[in-house]
Write a protein that binds this DNA or RNA. Structure first.
Length: 892
RNA sequence: GAUCUCAUAGCUCAGUUGGGAGAGCACCAUCUUGACAGGGUGGGGGUCGCAGGUUCAAGUCCUGCUGAGAUCACCA
């Protein structure tokens, strides 16, 4: 007890200074090892793996939202006694990182990656990665995240790379990974293949070019239309619908391709839409996915007319060497000049752009590696539709997920990059036999040749991300962590990566661990700017979380961002909201200062519920209990916005505006027993309230909590303090009724004073006419509060009192209140004021009576609802009658 | 074209299984009262987008419409 005694009376500065305390506590938490999971072997575990941020740069405010939501859950569960693991890590982010490093290299040294060579270039990327991984760790620390750094992982580290190999080899052996020549999405800027979802379609104002291809027999022309005229150089057919009467006679004939003069057939295929355009389509199998299919059906040649940089190649004849867009211009000029281009229409259409480079994506025939999605998707769909499902929060995102996985196409997983997991395939130099395995084979299994070269390409970043929930825990080994912490409990992420990541983790986990990777997925929205725009580098409207922290503190940022939204909905970032959160932190700080400044003679211990507690004491304990119950319930439902509101209201309204104000009477009074009781209630409630708030505002709650006198068994950090459990012994409905009447009375007096223009500081006489014995007792018991908070010079409580004419009146549920204001009052004005009140009460009475007169309502509504309305009716009637009587009296 | 989200006070947004609307900011008045002016007290302000329907009862559920946004799929 000497320790708590020595803490007594510690002075806190008048305003909370976040910068000072945040670093201090984070260091202590780290040193204490409180973030490390595994110290409660007998407790149930709770696992979250972090969505690994890219090592491309600093974290932005969107990360702050995502991670804060996770830290809230982890801290909450840890306090509830779980063995809580929050596993951190970072993602190598293939294209994104490589592009950044290449850009850096170009700007700083004027070199390309090819100048350095693969090995040297990768060294540079690793250095970049180290730098940004450190920056990210620093940012995590500033935001207060309780991550278990002993388990931190990186998608390219040794263990995870092994997992990637394992998955690749197994899928290959199962026939679910294959190599094939297909139309893929090609990014000519970064010169790599992309998967379908890495292509963003944007509406673009383009043109539709109508071209005439002359029939070789000289009998005329056939007209086709295209948005990409340069691809005509790769045309190998013109297709019409087999049932199209207009063209039936032409099928089987040939046309001569303008410029190149190649003779190509007119074919019939059901793919063609007769209604659209001329009903005839040019077919370019090497540059369009649909044409590719048509080409296969009709055994057409595939002529690639561009190179990997999007320049026209040797097949483009006179256009060789031109950029594809220059070629477009040139070829249209030429075709027009030669009379082959007959019409150019303005045409709005969707054009695919690379998600990373922004370049217009070229559908491109290329040999790549693919994952056959059908079997994997079917299993995921079956799982989702049976009981073995991942629960999406909010539910609607399940539909989004299912729609995607039900329509998914094969996944192109090879990337023409250097930064990533190199594809574990080796080709025999002699016979081109493919060998897939963990290591390079010594010799070709087919021809015995020993010269084998490994595939130059790496895997799509998302291939490794798909394994994240189990690769981070040690899979494919049967590790202790894997057994204890897998499957994880919840995945928290934004709706923008449901396809990229969430879906892929689910089907991979089902395939390789035979289980779902997480029970629930909590989906949040995007953080937008104050105008509701998406934050982006080009707009420069991004918000740096560190700037927010510097200005307002990490707790304010966390509270604002986590409570400022509804699940699944986008959040707008507004500085005013951070300011509000900062003010809230300051409010808590000062309420705590008040408590700490008034602990003279404090004797440690819980409030004695059987002791002489005041109604206010019992009321605040009751309200705390309700708040604890509500906060726990809401947190379990991921209702952070509501949780924040409940805590805010309890702390600001109930604790600060009412209880602390009321407590001053006990603290400054001369009854030492009452003072001690109130001190205990204050300390107890503040302690527990800080715990409820801790997941949201870890720093300030810890700082204050450490200043509070508290029992040794509470532990050395609020992080590990027990989460408050609802306790029925704290229920005090009578105290609640008493406080409600007191509050109503005090407010009514303040109100009429203000309305009657009584100076706020002026003490006035207050006459209370209670309605009955119980009320009389109640008011007598609480005289001191009325005097203090209603600004009373003298107080008369008398059920039989005859009010003076020159007085203003207020009516509350159990009493009439009179303020004799002889000098100030104008009778007519008072009557007018009361009549306004009367009109209001009459309207209420009428409304309730009408409801109760409704036979359907009384017979069908739940009893407690009907009872509530009856009580309202009585209350409004009573008040109305009193106001009516008072008006008559004044007139009278 | 398909699916989804949103529309509530001047602004930004809450509103948790349907029971007569709230917060912050802004605004008006007032208070240098011994935790806090980043504060206290009191106040004004809303036909909950429109039209129907279900129900004793609809901001809340259903249908249609209007407007804003998102995602997916597309016709060359």
């Amino acid at each position: 007890m000497s320790e708590t005694a020595s803490r007594r009376g510690v002075e806190l500065p008048t305003a909370y200074d976040p910068a000072q305390t945040e670093r201090k506590w984070y260091e202590k938490w780290l040193k204490g090892g409180y973030f490390t999971a595994g110290k409660r072997p007998d407790a149930p575990r709770y696992t979250i793996v972090i969505p690994p941020p890219n090592v491309t740069g600093n974290l932005h405010i969107g990360h702050a939202l995502d991670f804060t939501l996770q830290d809230i859950l982890i801290r909450f569960k840890r306090m509830q006694g779980y063995d809580a693991l929050w596993l951190p890590g970072t993602d190598h982010a293939g294209i994104a990182t490589q592009t950044k490093v290449e850009q850096h290299l170009r700007e700083e040294e004027g070199k390309t990656r090819h100048d350095l060579g693969r090995e040297e270039f990768l060294k540079r990327v690793w250095a970049w990665k180290e730098h940004y991984a450190n920056t990210i760790r620093e940012q995590w620390a500033k935001m207060g995240f309780s991550l278990d750094y002993t388990r931190e992982r990186f998608t390219l580290d040794e263990g995870l790379s092994r997992a990637v190999l394992e998955v690749f080899v197994r899928l290959y052996e199962k026939g679910l990974i294959y190599r094939g020549k297909r139309i893929i999405n090609w990014d000519p800027e970064t010169r790599t293949a992309l998967s379908d979802i890495e292509v963003e379609y944007k509406e673009v104002q383009g043109r539709l070019y109508h071209l005439r291809y002359p029939l070789t027999d000289g009998s005329g022309y056939i007209e086709v239309a295209t948005t990409r005229p340069e691809t005509m150089l790769g045309d190998t057919a013109v297709a019409v619908h087999p049932e199209d009467e207009r063209y039936r006679h032409l099928v089987g004939k040939t046309v001569r391709l303008p410029i190149l003069g190649r003779e190509i057939p007119i074919i019939a295929d059901e793919y063609v839409d007769m209604e659209f355009g001329s009903g005839a389509v040019k077919i370019t199998p090497a540059h369009d996915p649909n044409d590719f299919e048509v080409g296969l059906r009709h055994d057409l040649p595939q002529i690639l007319v561009m190179d990997e940089a999007g320049r026209m190649n040797e097949n483009a004849g006179p256009y060789q060497g031109l950029d594809r867009f220059e070629c477009r211009k040139k070829i249209v000029e030429d075709l027009t000049a030669q009379g082959f281009c007959v019409k150019i229409e303005e045409h709005v259409h969707q054009v695919g752009h690379s998600q990373r480079s922004g370049a217009v994506v070229e559908p491109y025939l290329s040999t790549q590696w693919f994952v056959a999605m059908k079997p994997l998707a079917e299993r995921a769909i079956a799982a989702q539709k049976s009981g073995k499902a991942v629960r999406f929060v909010p539910e609607r995102f399940e539909k989004i997920y299912l729609h995607w996985i039900e329509n998914v196409k094969d996944w192109c997983i090879s990337r023409q990059l250097w930064w990533g997991h190199r594809i574990p395939a080796w080709y025999c130099e002699a016979c081109e036999e493919i060998h897939v395995g963990h290591e390079a084979p010594a010799a070709c299994r087919k021809c015995g040749h020993t010269a084998l070269r490994q595939d130059e390409d790496v895997l799509d970043t998302w291939f490794s991300s798909a394994l994240w929930p189990f690769s981070t825990l040690g899979w494919p080994d049967d590790t202790e962590d894997m057994r204890r912490y897998y499957p994880t409990d919840v995945l928290v992420t934004g709706y923008d990566i449901i396809y990229f990541w969430v879906a892929r983790m689910i089907f991979t986990a089902l395939e390789f661990t035979d289980s779902i990777p997480f029970r629930e997925v909590l989906i949040h929205g995007l953080v937008r700017d104050a105008q509701g725009r998406k934050m982006s580098k080009s707009l420069g409207n991004g918000v740096d979380p560190l700037e927010v922290i510097e200005k307002y503190g990490a707790d304010a940022m966390r509270f604002m961002i986590s409570t400022g939204s509804t699940p699944g909905q986008d959040v707008r970032f507004r500085w005013e909201k951070v300011e509000q959160a900062r003010n809230f932190a300051n409010k808590i700080w000062n309420a705590s200062r008040f408590v700490l400044m008034n602990l003279d003679g404090y004797e440690p211990g819980d409030p004695d519920l059987d002791g002489p507690l005041t109604a206010a004491d019992r009321w605040i304990l009751h309200r705390f209990n309700e708040t604890a119950r509500e906060v726990t319930r809401l947190l379990d439902q991921y209702e952070n916005g509501e949780t924040g509101r409940v805590l805010y209201d309890f702390i600001w309204d109930d604790l600060c505006d009412w209880y602390i104000e009321f407590s001053k009477l006990s603290l400054y009074g001369d009854d030492p027993e009452r003072r001690k009781t109130t001190q205990r209630v204050l300390v107890w409630v503040l302690d527990r309230t800080l715990r409820l708030l801790h997941p949201f505002m870890p720093f300030i709650t810890e700082e204050i909590w450490q200043h509070l006198p508290r029992a040794a068994e509470a532990g050395e950090t609020i992080m590990l303090a027990e989460w408050p459990r609802p306790d029925d012994r704290l229920n005090a409905p009578e105290a609640v009724r008493e406080m409600e009447l007191l509050k109503q009375t005090i407010r009514a007096v303040r109100n009429v004073r203000a309305e009657s223009g009584v100076a706020p500081g002026k003490k006035v006489e207050l006459l209370v006419k209670p309605a009955g014995e119980a009320e009389l007792e109640l008011f007598k018991r609480n005289e001191a509060y009325l005097v203090r908070f209603a600004g009373t010079s003298s107080l008369v409580i008398d059920p039989n009192l005859a009010p003076p004419a020159k007085a203003v009146t207020a009516v509350v549920t159990g009493a009439e209140l009179f303020l004799p204001l002889a000098g100030l009052i104008d009778i007519e004005q008072e009557i007018a004021r009361l009549e306004k009140e009367l009109a209001h009460l009459n309207a209420e009475v009428e409304r309730v009576e009408k409801k109760l007169a409704n036979e359907g309502f009384v017979s069908k509504a739940p009893l407690h609802i009907v009872e509530e309305e009856r009580a309202k009716e009585r209350d409004y009637r009573e008040k109305r009658d009193k106001v009516l009587a008072r008006i008559a009296e004044l007139r009278g």
